[in-house]
Design a protein around this nucleic acid. Sequence first.
DNA 1: CATTATTGTTGTAAACAGCAACAAATGTCT
DNA 2: AGACATTTGTTGCTGTTTACAACAATAATG
Lengths: 145, 145
Amino acid sequence: MRKRRQSLDLGVLEDHVGYFVRRLQVWVFQDFVRSLASLDIRPAQYAVLVVIEANSGPSQADVAERLGIERARLVRLLDGLQRRGLIRRRASPRDRRSHALILTRRGHGELKRMKLLAAAHEANLTRRLGPEERASILASLRKFT
Amino acid sequence: MRKRRQSLDLGVLEDHVGYFVRRLQVWVFQDFVRSLASLDIRPAQYAVLVVIEANSGPSQADVAERLGIERARLVRLLDGLQRRGLIRRRASPRDRRSHALILTRRGHGELKRMKLLAAAHEANLTRRLGPEERASILASLRKFT
DNA sequence: CATTATTGTTGTAAACAGCAACAAATGTCT
DNA sequence: AGACATTTGTTGCTGTTTACAACAATAATG
């Protein structure tokens, strides 16, 4: 039998929001990755695709700012999505520096499947937290941003 | 004047707990790092020190499991703390494989100062969220683990 | 026009996470 | 007791994420 070992005391960590936020974040992240593994999509990629779909030809700077990721990182992230034929960088009509991001037809199709799996992931979380607790957390977190 | 640009639509991201958890986590992490920058301590290091203080001579495996970090990563993290004279790896009396982790006198002193700065960071968050909202989030997140 | 700011991009470094392997020590089972 | 499996701390390697600095092209501003 395994050696019995009671859980350690967290000390003042018990009063730090950051500690628990991180624990939940890790769990959510891992479950999301697992849930979308068959499509080989990670959370950041999913977020970018969703935001591109929900807006008409946003620029890279727009997307980066809205999602709170660095412009430099978004560049390489989009490179990957473009290589896979999910998005296109169209020339912007009014600003020759910037790109208007759009989903390809294939991108739309894939995103549709991603959303199904993402919803399943969200259901996992609901099962783990209980529906009202999840709604409560969601409402509280929304107020933050 | 800056080009006026209204915020992009988040689309279905609005219904994903993970998205908002990440946003909060990033904010908390950055504010924590900034708050403890003068002591050159990062969140993971702080958590380890707190847990060592709150328990009597825990093993590395204990701490790693409790904090959800990998044993391998904890090794290098402890190397750094030991080099700075904050902790010691005492020989465990009952198991010659494992170490009993303890704070040095200096570790105790430094941790005391860290706690003050960490409390200030927590106050930042409270100011940002409001006291009752923070309490609500903390309670909800605690239930998760 | 001259200057300043923004956009996309590349490069680089650090932190962080995951996996595999290993020797030493302990536990388990017959 | 001895054979076998497991645990502990450790090292190495591979990506991923984050941060920061620089740059050319273009746009905005005085």
